[in-house]
Amino acid sequence: MSTSDIPTRGPARPGPYILSGILIAIGIVMPLVVPIYARQMPTLFGMPFFYWYQMLWVLIDSFLLWICYRVITREDRRRRDAVRNTTAPSGDDEPEPRS
């Protein structure tokens, strides 16, 4: 199956991946460190900290992933443009098999 070895993307720059990796790690670890939020105070609208902190992380994670999405798709597009036919701008070239 050597023909499918044709790279689909050019080489990666580490920056965007490191940044996204850090944001993803924050998004996974912070909602799981129970000792920092298993407490009553401060309350918000009568809701203990334990509850609103965890629900707040829904929004924070969403925001972090939005940044990751922007950074990663940009890098992804750059890597694809590096190997695709430069005469056809990316995004509207037909899915034609390259040989």
């Binding site: 199956m1 023909t3 499918s4 070895d5 044709i6 790279p7 689909t8 993307r9 992804d76 890597r79 694809r80 070239d93 037909e94 899915p95 034609e96 098999p97 390259r98 040989s99």
Partner: peptide
């Protein structure tokens, strides 16, 4: 049966089946 490039493919990249057909029309995928 997968290659490194498969894991980064997007919707515009051809399917392996298509590549095989184009490259080796007489030979079925192994």
């Amino acid at each position: 049966t997968t290659t490194v490039s498969d894991y980064g493919a997007d919707e515009l990249d051809p399917k392996v089946r298509v590549i095989e057909k184009t490259a080796e029309p007489t030979q079925a995928g192994p």
